[in-house]
Write a protein that binds this DNA or RNA. Structure first.
Lengths: 146, 146
DNA sequence: TGGGACCATATGGGGGTCAATGGGATTTGG
DNA sequence: CCAAATCCCATTGACCCCCATATGGTCCCA
């Protein structure tokens, strides 16, 4: 598989680490991603993680604007100030830093959620509720496929 | 890493010093920056800090305009009158002067914010709020990439 | 078909290394 | 000569390499 799919919840250990699901690590290996660009999502209280080209894409978007404009300044505040590169340890674990905890509300467990070209880190209960809400809204709009 | 990313909050000690995050110091070393050019940001209540070439870039921009124009005059007022050079001590700490405190509202703690080619000093709560607002505006503009 | 060998993943923790912080001692500048 | 800035060292705590254990699943063979 070459994209991130499904979701799984893992425990954070006493040192603040959590295992990234094996299937996600497999995708990372296949895409040759050794360092994760992680940023605070613009819409949900979740951390999004993907390859460095994700940041490149954002920066190209900034470069298309006047570099001194408030909009460019604001965008940089989010993708640079709200983003960071992280690495997995040898066992494929990730440190759950305050950068992640403060923004997501994660405490003891992490729900990993596949999003095709990247994946996200959620507080389990927040993910449950948000997904349920999204499903509900979709049903109300009558856009449910199938 | 060769650019300033992410954010971190450090305490100001009894002598008014604060540690610059290790990752930022690493970038400074890699870019061979020994002296910081610090200036009052044009958009946000934050101090921006980077290498001397930052000032050079601003001055070149002034030089491209009519030197007696109001715009050039105004720009000089900001980058010269609102700027200063600073150095880190041996442990990588920075004196938090009134120049910094008055403009940012910083008192006990400093949030360091990466901005790719420079970094900023914010009052922690002001940063939180400004970033949240930026995220909100981005959402309203419907410009979410990805 | 049931038991057991084998394997992969998740989890736990020891111990070294490095960064953040605190504070005494010394120097510098007005 | 005094106050502030800087140097230097000690302490604490966080992170990371490395190895051990737990847990659950699959495959093979009797």
């Amino acid at each position: 598989m070459n994209r991130f799919l499904s979701h799984a919840t893992n425990r954070i250990d006493a040192k603040g680490r959590v295992s990234v699901p094996s299937s996600f690590r497999g995708v990372l290996a296949k895409l040759d991603i050794r360092e994760l660009y992680c940023f605070q999502d613009f819409v949900f209280p979740a951390i999004s993680a993907g390859g460095p080209e994700l940041l490149d894409r954002f920066e190209r978007q900034i470069a298309d604007e006047d570099p001194f404009s408030p909009q460019a300044n604001e965008m940089s505040l989010l993708i640079h100030g709200g983003g960071v590169f992280m690495k997995l340890d040898q066992e494929g674990r990730l440190m759950v830093t305050d950068f992640i905890r403060d923004f997501t509300g994660i405490t003891n467990e992490v729900t990993f959620v596949g999003r095709a070209d990247h994946f996200q880190l959620w507080a389990p209960q927040v993910f449950q509720e948000t997904q349920a809400t999204a499903r509900q809204e979709r049903r109300l709009r009558g856009l449910r496929p199938g």
